[in-house]
Design a protein around this nucleic acid. Sequence first.
DNA 1: CACTTGACCTGTCCGC
DNA 2: TGCGGACAGGTCAAGT
Length: 291
Amino acid sequence: MPELPEVETVRRGLVELLPGRKFKKLTVSNLKSFRSSGEEDSFLIGAKVTGVRRRAKVLMIDLDSGYTLVTHLKMTGQLVFVGEERFGAGHPSDSLIGNLPDRSTRIEYQFQDDSHLFFNDQRKFGWMWLMPTLEVDNIDFMKRVGPEPLDDDFTEQQFKARFTRRARTSIKAALLDQSVIAGVGNIYADESLWGAKVHPGRLVSSLTDVEWHDLYTDLRVVLALSIEKGGSTAKNYLNARGEKGKYLDFARVFRREGLPCPRCGATIVKLRVAGRGTHICPQEQILEKVL
DNA sequence: CACTTGACCTGTCCGC
DNA sequence: TGCGGACAGGTCAAGT
């Protein structure tokens, strides 16, 4: 589910809702969803939220106890805040708040002001990990993860150079590899490859400089546009207020098989590349590139 | 090392 | 309507 734009949208919501609130109660209903060393009574209960950060697809809720709630939503995770407006009128029409906790609720946090943060996760792949803030950077994933594609100082030259380690695989598999570039998942891999007119099965080493340029540019454009639209909701994704994202209304190929390519009108097809469902325009994204 | 596949879970959809 | 299988936005531990 959540890729960089979705996690960033959740972060932007939480940073408006959580800082200053103090934890009062923790309820874990699926043990595998919550990892800690048993220090939650000392460093979570009574602690105040000081900030909410994101790196790649990982969220970090920092506490004034020197601890951090490190969160990965994986495929179906949601972090939804419910405040005192819970039973009031005027919710956005696509908000699902009001019915929590439900059968997908794995962790429930109650704050001292009686507002709540729910970690819902249908498939139970996601997790929240309470750990010392200073140790977050020592997590294996954090040490391996590649640069943030939207950073101002992330250049086209750096982008291309990151792929040398995956020269003999498909460009789609390489885009999905978090150690190459942070935050790209199945949706934005397909969308950016369509933008650059590159077939997802193309060997990394076969891309031309023009294709690298277009892929770099389109990936950044697509990620920024999706953040602007509040991310993509294909099925489960919700932001911190329980609302869906609108990017899929603007998607060009993802989940659009059978519909016309917005550029050339050819029928979009779905295939399997790197073990993942993959959407392309078969007229513009071709495997045997004639040079 | 680089690369691919299966596993982790639950739910839904599609074909028989 | 029931049942089996494939599939779903991610990542890691195995395997080759």
